[in-house]
Design a protein around this nucleic acid. Structure first.
Lengths: 198, 198
DNA sequence: CGCATAATCCTAACTGTGTTAGGAAATCCT
DNA sequence: AGGATTTCCTAACACAGTTAGGATTATGCG
């Protein structure tokens, strides 16, 4: 069997359409917020009519699902692109890098951050499949902390809550500004100083 | 002038209707979430039809506005009901009480907490009037910290972000549980230890 | 008490949004 | 080329927020 070039062509075409639709949704979200991502608007952007989107996605939420998964995959990529050898950094420096990198990823695209971390879309709940990259990111982060002796779930819970709180506050109260960004290093110092490590 | 008892009667009747509508909205929210607060459902609960609600509220968002203001007023009351003489408590103890009280207020009614602190309703933005109790609560908290020498905005910002992050995480990931509740005292200790006080 | 006015409620209709169903057009495969 | 599959369209539906016009009820005044 030489394979099915035509089948690949079909799959690629299908994937291209889905990507085009998701990209249109991101564009709308960035312009007018997640709520403005209506099927009619998305369809118009890709030169279709709303019901035609159902050929490619099961529902409006399915589009958000794809966006959710993509956002988390982008974050993973983003973190890996800037990764440095964890073993050559102190825990403090690592967390300062990690917190700043994640913070900037979020504030650079508020609708994306909202989709990833907040519940701004009524009725939308990521499917287990879309949630996988999110879990992967969390798992990855957890593994990166092991060499530092940070292994307890509550330690990680506290860190993520702290960082999440700073990001949410920044996005909600000072969009485009740096009021909570300025607190990042201090927050990390506070956190690391409070760790009970062996 | 002896006043206008009939005018008061009218105002009271009007206020009673508004209260009944807002209460119906809270009931729906607690049962099925904020998104389920539709005008048709609210109206049905108070024995009306949806368009009739416009006699009492300018819009659906106006109902949310009233709910928002009420939630924050309730919080103020709640905090005052449990208030103890701040001057007789250490900062640490005060913040442990404050964080726990606020945390419990939030987790005891998730839709209320979401309305107060998150953006789960597309298009809803509290009016300055409704926002006033929220500002008052923040101002009040700020004043309570002064005797402890905590006066810098960034100190308060860090605390509220930390507490907000814990609450959001609890509500989103462990509703009804105590995974992040367990971290409260530790978080406060971490915070207080990291304060740079004179 | 009766009448006028204001308040309160209803119905019909409109616009917008997500979705379904049936069918036409385009593309792919043999 | 013909058949099957994919992709798109239109019409229609249900639901939600809202407006407009009118009916009903409550209030105020002489």
């Amino acid at each position: 069997m030489l394979g099915n070039p035509t089948r690949d062509r079909l799959a690629e075409r299908r994937e291209a359409s889905r990507r085009e639709i998701v990209n249109a949704a991101w564009s709308i979200a960035r312009e007018d917020g997640l709520a403005a991502v209506t099927l009619r608007e998305v369809a118009a952007r890709v030169g279709m009519r709303a019901p035609s989107l159902y050929t490619h996605f099961e529902s409006r939420n399915a589009i958000f699902d794809a966006m959710f998964a993509q956002a988390w995959r982008d974050l993973i990529e983003h973190m890996e692109a800037g990764i440095r050898e964890a073993s050559t950094m102190s825990l403090r420096d690592f967390l300062k890098w990690n917190s700043r990198t994640f913070f900037e990823f979020c504030v650079s695209d508020p609708p994306r951050a909202q989709l990833m971390n907040q519940r701004t879309i009524p009725g939308f709940e990521p499917t287990p499949e879309a949630y996988a990259p999110s879990l992967a990111a969390w798992q990855r982060f957890r593994e990166e902390l092991v060499p530092y002796g940070v292994t307890r779930t509550e330690d990680i819970d506290l860190y993520t809550a702290l960082l999440g709180g700073l990001i949410d506050a920044q996005l909600a109260n000072d969009p485009g500004g740096d009021r909570w960004e300025k607190l990042l290093d201090r927050a990390v110092d506070m956190y690391v100083d409070g760790l009970d490590l062996p």
